[in-house]
């Protein structure tokens, strides 16, 4: 059963931001990456799913139930970490977490202490006095406290130091092994690369790609870099599948998706000084998506 089902979800504001005709599903037990630059509509999508704002078209279902009609019921099983963590003034970390827990019919005191210990969070501090990273930790513990079946994370790692990020990811993987589905929104692709099994890429409110992580960064894409003894004739490489062509100071680099023999035959015709063939990181693939769609859309 899909945990999240978006069906032509649309939200238009007066201005430009919003989302248009967004459809994808997240299956049970997945860690699903939701990627896009800032302002692409990631938070809008999440807020629509949570019923903070209402869609102007389409529908969203969570656990097979419509988000508008069954919002309260659905939210019993959702843990949400907002991108910017603001909490009630004058509350201690402990008070806030207890307040959060009081909305769910579960005794979470033990788990609160465990999570706080792992995230090195002082329960007796006032939230106002915490640094950005520590506030984020409060948000993380708050989101995981009631052992939700669906964890929705909006830009969860900003402000966390690498060690804490590591622990946080371990926590997420643990929850995932226990059966939780995770929607992980981010503009930092390397994070998603490690954790997620599938990604949806969104730009200007539209879904531009939905792929398995393994396919996205898998063998289909290669990054070539050549140092040639003479100038490289770009037109010789003008075959389908070549993109991101860059020529700089005698070095040429590009991404290639397609028959590897085809491209090697063309490279064989050059006098080379050096050659690198690498797996591109997601960032480069993403940039390609981003730019090519921009070209196509214009």
């Amino acid at each position: 059963m899909p945990v999240i089902e978006l069906n032509g979800l649309t939200k238009t504001y007066g201005g430009a931001r919003g989302i248009t005709d967004l459809s994808f599903t997240v299956e049970e037990g997945e860690i699903f990456g939701f990627i896009g630059p800032n302002g692409a509509g990631k938070s809008t999508t999440i807020r629509t799913m949570l019923g903070l704002i209402y869609p102007t078209g389409g529908s969203a279902k969570i656990f097979g139930k419509d988000c508008l009609q069954h919002g309260t019921e659905i939210k019993k099983e959702i843990g949400y970490l907002p991108s910017e963590v603001f909490y009630y003034d004058n509350m201690k970390v402990k008070d806030l977490l207890q307040y959060s827990a009081s909305f769910y019919k579960k005794d979470s005191r033990k788990r609160m202490r465990e999570l706080a210990e792992r995230m090195e969070l002082d329960l007796n501090k006032r939230i106002d006095d915490l640094s950005l990273g520590n506030k984020k930790k409060v948000g993380i513990v708050q989101g995981l406290l009631h052992e939700p079946r669906l964890i929705i994370l909006d830009e969860p790692t900003s402000g966390l130091d690498p060690l804490m990020q590591q622990r946080f990811f371990e926590l997420l993987e643990e929850e995932n092994r226990k059966g939780a589905t995770i929607l992980f929104s981010s503009h930092i692709l390397s994070e998603v690369q490690r954790l997620c099994s599938r990604v949806a890429i969104i730009k200007e409110g539209r879904l531009i790609a939905l792929e398995k992580m393994s396919e996205l960064k898998g063998s289909t894409y290669k990054k070539f870099k050549l140092a040639a003894k003479s100038d490289v004739d770009a037109s010789a490489f003008g075959i389908p599948g070549v993109m991101e062509w860059k020529s700089e100071g005698g070095e040429v680099s590009f991404l290639f998706k397609g028959d590897i023999n085809e491209i090697l035959r063309r490279i064989a015709g050059l006098e080379l000084e050096n050659l690198w063939v690498e797996e591109p990181d997601l960032e480069e693939i993403f940039m390609h998506y981003y730019e090519s769609r921009e070209g196509a859309g214009a």
Partner: peptide
């Protein structure tokens, strides 16, 4: 964003 994500109508 905190309150409305809780199971309360």
């Amino acid at each position: 964003e905190f309150l409305l994500a809780k199971p309360i109508s």
